[in-house]
Design a protein around this nucleic acid. Structure first.
Lengths: 185, 185
DNA sequence: TTTTCCATGTAACTCGTTACATGATTTC
DNA sequence: GAAATCATGTAACGAGTTACATGGAAAA
């Protein structure tokens, strides 16, 4: 009744998916994630190393150690047939189930009425500015042409960012105008 | 260098915010959250009880025990002046900082190319259907008129849901049509 | 009379992060 | 010669969830 397959583990899916393209060692994988997938996942290096070893125990990947020159030895992971099946199973589940992301900002929104409107407007404009900076950085990373799927997922992310920007502009303007009215009348 | 104020704690903000409206006991608060804020927060009952007691130790709330009939005694929490300051501070931070939600579904998107297009289209249509069901439920809860801020945050959530629906419909249609082409030609 | 609701609390556990250890090697 | 990169690993810690304990009252 407990087990682990109820909640989909998108971290394993990610690692297996990367290994579907080619075998790789941990450092390589972590590097790729850090440089390209900042907005897609929050997995940390230590976690990835542990997960890779765990997947080796489960038989989803095999390991063999490589030595290049006399640099630190690399543990190169390759996906196995069972790993491929697991990957496909996780992928299907991931595709079928909508995720319910939590927007932490919604908690603040709930209590807007406890601060003066113009102050709220000011804070939201701050938020807007930061968001736009994030979006600029994000779009730079977007142009480096990736595989089709990666491109798609980054564009998906961008759509939600853009919605957020539009929404913030609208709300901030509303708050602004409603305080202006009072000032004018 | 570590401390607790670096990452904004939206759970405390939520609890303090609820107590800004009126004093309440733990069960009452948990009940409200469970019935109204399913999509806003993931805080669990046990966590809320612990947090309320912790905030009492920090002086942000006071507790007094009430007995109604001989039902289980209630621990009623009231926000203190220091609590109000903390609430406002957390609220300002929450409003100023955009959140970077993680869309777990984006991980799956990255690896679309590893399944046949028509299968992907099928899975995404499944996802779409489930999402629409969620949205129906959500909209029912939306109509029960809440305070202005709560209404706003729920509408915000709805916007993102709607974007997701539109996006899914577009992508699923694209995948469908590109497999149709092959069938026709 | 069995189930659900009221009302709180906590021990055990899971999961993941932080922070550090190690050591060679290229770059500045 | 100092700093960043390469490459992995793990112990300690923290946060939060699960699952259970308790026990009366109201609803079915």
């Amino acid at each position: 009744m407990k087990g682990g397959n109820d909640v989909i583990d998108e971290r394993s899916l990610l690692l297996l998916g990367i290994l579907m393209a080619q075998s790789a060692h941990g450092y390589q994988i972590n590097d790729f994630i850090e440089k390209n997938l900042l907005y897609v996942t929050e997995i940390k290096k230590a976690t990835a190393y542990v997960l890779l070893d765990r997947m080796a125990l489960s038989g989803f990947v095999t390991v063999h150690t490589e030595q290049a020159g006399n640099r630190p030895p690399r543990k190169v992971y390759s996906i196995t047939p069972e790993g491929i099946e697991q990957f496909q199973s996780l992928l299907r589940q991931n595709l079928e189930h909508p995720d319910s992301p939590i927007y932490k900002g919604d908690v603040g929104l709930m209590f807007l009425d406890h601060l003066p409107k113009d102050e709220v407007a000011h804070h939201l404009q701050q938020r807007l500015q930061r968001l736009q900076e994030q979006m600029n950085l994000f779009q730079k990373g977007l142009s480096h042409s990736h595989a089709a799927g990666i491109q798609l997922s980054l564009e998906h992310r961008l759509l939600h960012m853009q919605l957020e920007v539009d929404w913030l502009e609208r709300i901030a303007a509303q708050l602004q105008s409603s305080t202006d009215e009072k000032t004018v009348q």
